[in-house]
Each structure stands twice: as structure tokens, then as C-alpha cells.
Design a protein around this nucleic acid. Structure first.
Lengths: 114, 114
DNA sequence: CGGGATCCGCGCTGATACTG
DNA sequence: CAGTATCAGCGCGGATCCCG
């Protein structure tokens, strides 16, 4: 049992999963969304994956799941109070990510100009 | 070809890889390290993985690789000037990650007290 | 010393079909 | 509508061996 000094992985593990950042983006942006609404915002994700990633985010107390007992079923997802603490992290990553995409683009054009 | 609004993945893709955060942690902390020194700091990583992840970080212009043409070989790794822009990102993730670990620990102890 | 080459198992991801 | 169940492909990560 080693005391890991670097807790970056702790944050990373929450975010990895091909769709989690996008799911979180939509939930932060829209507030509350039904399952089908999330699905419509991400046409390429399968139902299985959407369910799975939402469950994982729920397990981490990032996302809240509210089931309305009615027919047809209605399930709403939103960011938990605690989950909101993730927003600055996502913003920093988003901004660095944008800058990095630009950096690499310029870099490649230099390389290809040989 | 869709314009992705969420660039979090852009940052994520640089960092994922089981060992990258730890590698970066050591390089930020120590400045410059030889391959064997990195290996010693992470006894569990295999040579193959260390090489691979360093290459990937090099491709992203985060890590610099300097080969000294001598026998026995000597290769030093360090963070590039550009790579230093990653430090605040890592810090934010590290801090949130630490807080999250604590949060989940407390949360679990509550749940188990049924 | 700092790699490269190869083989392999496992888990993530996806496609598809079914259900309360 | 919001899932669950099952099957399959593939790439990541690891183990092991070889090399300049």
C-alpha cells in the first residue's frame, strides 16, 4: 500500500470514458436533462454506454438521477451540488485543450513545410 | 466532421495512459531525469510502457528527449517550455482529485453505517 | 543503458435484441 | 421511455526476449 503523491489520476478516473466529458458538458450547460434528451444531444452514443457512464458518474456523486414513477418512464439527470465543484476543473481542461489543439496544428504545419 | 464544442477530451487524451500523470509529476518535480532514474522512481512500470508513454508525451510537445551519443547510452527527459503550460492544469486536477478522494471516503463511511 | 519486437489477456466499447 | 442482456472486436497494458 503506497501513498500516492500524485492524485491527478483520481480526477482522471472520473473523467475517462469516451463520453463523460460531453455528458457533463451538456448537464452543466442545460441543467437538467432526460435520458432521451441526452441521447438526442449525442446521437452517436449507444443507450448502453449512456446508461453505463451515467451510472458511473452517479456512483462518484457527480450526477444525480431522479426517477419519476410513471408510464412511460421519465428519468432526469442533473449535476449534484458536490458535482459542481468539478466545473472549474473542466473549464481549465477545456481551455488548455483548445490551446493545445491550436498549438499542435501550428506545429504540424511547420513540420510539413520541409 | 463535427465541430466539437467540448475540448476537455483534447486535454484528457494527453493525460490518459496509466502512468503519464506520474511521469509528468516526477519531471515537473525533478526537472530532468534519465530513463533509468524514471524507471527507479516507478518500479512497477515496465520499460516498454515507460518508453511508449514518454514517446507519446514527446509527440505532444510536452516532454523533451535528449540523447547523448555515448556508450553506454544516456537519455534525458524534461518538460518542454510549452509543456510547462500543463502545470496549472495538473495542479487543479490534483487538488480536486485529493478532495474527491476524501469526499468519497466520508461518503462511503456514512453509507456503511446503516 | 535504453530501448525495440512479439505475444497475449482483459476490459472498454459498440451492435443488436429484448423488456417493464 | 429508459433501460437490461448478450455477443463480438479491438486496443491498452503487461510479460518476456532480443539488440546496439
Amino acid at each position: 500500500m503506497k501513498t500516492e503523491i500524485c492524485k491527478v489520476n483520481e480526477a482522471l478516473n472520473i473523467l475517462v470514458g469516451k463520453w463523460k466529458p460531453v455528458i457533463l458538458y451538456h448537464l452543466f450547460h442545460e441543467g437538467t436533462l432526460r435520458f432521451s434528451e441526452l441521447k438526442r444531444l449525442m446521437p452517436e452514443i449507444t443507450q448502453k454506454m449512456l446508461t453505463k457512464q451515467l451510472r458511473e458518474l452517479e456512483d462518484e456523486d457527480i450526477v444525480q438521477r431522479v426517477v419519476y414513477p410513471q408510464v412511460p418512464p421519465k428519468v432526469e439527470y442533473s449535476i449534484t451540488e458536490y458535482g459542481k465543484s468539478l466545473e472549474p476543473v473542466l473549464n481549465v481542461m477545456h481551455e488548455w485543450g483548445s490551446a493545445h489543439a491550436k498549438h499542435m496544428k501550428e506545429r504540424r504545419s511547420k513540420v510539413s513545410s520541409y
